[in-house]
Design a protein around this nucleic acid. Structure first.
Lengths: 344, 344
DNA sequence: GTTAGCACTCTATCTATCCGAGTGCTAAAT
DNA sequence: ATTTAGCACTCGGATAGATAGAGTGCTAAC
């Protein structure tokens, strides 16, 4: 078990390292006003903390740096969310006073705020498309042979795809088809659309519509929902101002990880709901061993969950980021679910 | 005027420098099989070329590097498009055999191919949204107070925005409104929607619809088209494998330029249509003085123009990129305008 | 007009050296 | 039994030569 003084020192050291990014020595700790023991004493304590695995040295005669275990302990036991200065708080709230016409825009703005105020990289993942429910379907003809099939979901998301519409299908056929689909598929989750089409709709269509085979192939094509992730980044290059990434190879590999698909899986793979912190190698994804990930969720339509994440160096300003990500995810949820959107 | 031999040497030198990224010396040129004069002769010629401003030295006793004037001359007079190996050609064509359900996907794939085959960064800009014409409009209610307004354009692009729908507006009102809009606004360019709404539609609505004022505010909100650029990147990090960007500061500033808005303006600002090459400082945009930009256009619906661009170091494999960007933009145009999309 | 020879220049790399920050340990002080 | 002062030791990073190599320009011979 750690003594009171060890807790105190660990906290000091992490706080110091977070801002300085340099190994912390006994002398610099002793210089602080609120520390009343000598460097030698501190050295002894630090040596103990190192023995217990909370601290590390970068080389034999260097100052100490928190280990992953040290960060973990800090996060679990010593971390309290930061208080934001009033002006920052105000700026953030103001940003949400604006009227957002598109859900996407709202999410993008949130990512931007988060990355700008943390100085790290923000990643937002939209709610699972496949879980959304069909609210309205529409087929618009563009040319004699092409059309756009539009699916609106209960969350207000709009999917659209270009489909080929055989010449033989006339305007009144389209209306009939669309009506049938709207009636039969209302509030059906998108991932079930295919099934329902084959199970229920096929028969109805066969009886009511000309050129049944072509219509079915059109619909089969149009109701296939793929690419199920919407993902937004902001501040990708913020990371590269951090001293731990002053190395070209690290930058390239981090950039590749950020732009890859695996990061999404890693993020989805967080225990659902609430705020979570993954430190360094706690992330399974290779390439971000030197990073920490803080995530939380937001909701849309009261039930669909999306993910808000901040990725930064292990040496992250945890208290501040925790406060910010929490604030921002709440504001986002609030805005997405606002019944009465602000007029004017 | 340049002599035959000087032309030959300039070409050799550029080609060599493009692959090696190192200043080229007289000896290494003389070693080539197709060169039948001695290093000393070459030195004399290179000194002349330098005097004329086509070449530069990085320091007093280094080999030569093409100057911007040199690249410009090379591009204008010595460049001939590269021939692609059959297998690459095949791979690219194959990629377009797939069926694309969304226009966006097609553009994204094009960007990806371009960046992968050039190893530089590809940037695609969609056609001007504001120039597109209204093909169909639809308002879908999500909740008692919210709805999604959907605008389909002649190119198959779908714009959507969440709007607040006053409770007082009933389903039959919506139908009426939408019918009026579809009739009156058919094929009206998006940038005119606002005008038309106020000029023509307002009166009609006043006579036919309840709660006129609220409806107008809803439509004013919904028909405001902003954020007019669609932009797709691919291979952003390719640049950083290039030897000229082995410096963290350069990477950060280039990344910031790539992610900024100004790059779009720079690209739009190309003389319309056809292939263009901008070398180094010919680009007005600060931050890409060491890059070259090759752009061309693609079209959708036969008239709307979008931009395809490749950004790479000045020391770019011009012949290959020219061939690739030309090929890919043609394939893209072809696919976007295909009347009969491939079945199955 | 071309080429061999040579002195000269500049960079990149390697090595040696030195400085300072920090540690661990021991012994004295509290 | 803690705490602290003192000291020898370690290691990384910066600095300064020294050296090798690639390349040039110029001159004189071919």
């Amino acid at each position: 078990m750690l003594t009171e003084r060890q807790l105190f020192l660990l906290q000091l050291l992490v706080n110091d390292y977070v801002v300085s990014a340099e190994p912390v020595g006994s002398r610099s700790i002793a210089k602080r006003e609120d520390v009343h023991f000598s460097p030698a004493t501190i050295r002894n304590e630090l040596a103990d903390l190192e023995e217990m695995g909370y601290l590390e040295k970068t080389h034999l005669s260097s100052g100490r740096v928190p280990s992953e275990k040290g960060y973990r302990f800090y996060v679990d036991h010593l971390l309290s969310p930061a208080l934001l200065p009033d002006d920052e708080m105000g700026n953030i709230r103001d940003a949400y006073q604006k009227k957002f016409s598109e859900t996407e825009e709202l999410i993008r703005v949130t990512a931007k705020i988060l990355s700008e105020f943390t100085n790290y990289t923000a990643i937002m993942i939209g709610p699972e498309l496949l879980e959304m429910k069909m609210k309205h379907i529409q087929l618009v003809k563009l040319s004699p042979t092409q059309g756009v099939l539009i699916i609106v979901t209960d969350t207000g998301h709009v999917e659209n795809r270009v489909v080929s519409v055989p010449d033989s299908i006339k305007a009144e056929d389209i209306e009939k088809i669309v009506n049938i689909l709207n009636e039969k598929l209302n509030m059906v989750p998108l991932y079930q659309l295919q099934n329902r089409l084959n199970a229920e709709i096929a028969d109805v269509l066969r009886n009511h519509v000309r050129d049944y085979k072509r219509v079915m192939s059109l619909l089969t094509e149009g109701l296939t929902i793929n690419d199920p992730e919407q993902i937004f980044y902001s501040g990708k290059s913020n990371m590269f101002s951090q001293p731990e990434f002053q190395d070209v190879d690290k930058i390239i590999s981090l950039l590749n990880v950020l732009e890859g698909k695996e990061i999404v899986r890693e993020l989805m793979n967080m225990p659902a709901k609430g705020l979570h912190i993954r430190i360094g190698r706690e992330n399974k994804l290779i390439g971000i061993e030197d990073c920490s990930l803080i995530t939380t969720t937001y909701s849309i339509g009261g039930e669909h969950l999306g993910t808000v994440a901040v990725i930064g160096p292990k040496r992250m300003a945890y208290p501040r980021v925790v406060t910010l990500i929490d604030l921002v995810s709440k504001l986002l949820t609030e805005n997405l679910n606002k019944q009465e959107r602000k007029e004017r």
